[in-house]
């Protein structure tokens, strides 16, 4: 199976309520809350594209856009 490669974290700042669930459960500590209590991708290079932040977000405010990395096939 092709592995997923990160394109970007699309964050809807109008919808994010800063609950911190995505930050607390990210297995690679990629995400942080900024001074306005909105999520940002602080260390996108560490993202393993598990997409659990996207799936757990109660506000549908984060989307992990990926490409298939066919080189690893």
């Amino acid at each position: 199976m092709a592995r997923l490669k990160l394109k970007e974290h699309v964050i809807n700042r109008d919808w994010c309520k800063g609950c911190g669930i995505c930050v607390d459960f990210c297995p690679k500590q990629v995400l942080e809350l900024d001074s306005k209590e909105k999520v940002i991708a602080a260390r996108p290079e560490d993202c393993i594209c598990c997409k659990l932040c996207e799936l757990r977000c109660p506000d549908l405010a984060i989307e992990v856009l990926t490409d298939r990395d066919d080189k690893n096939d």
Binding site: D14, W15, K17, G18, C19, G20, I21, L55, R56, C57, P58, D59, L60, A61
Partner: peptide, 17 residues
């Protein structure tokens, strides 16, 4: 959207699922 549920409400996650 944004919906009316409180920050961190599990109902939003259930909607998501």
């Amino acid at each position: 959207f944004p919906h009316m549920w409180c920050p961190g409400c599990g109902h939003g996650t259930i909607l998501n699922s």
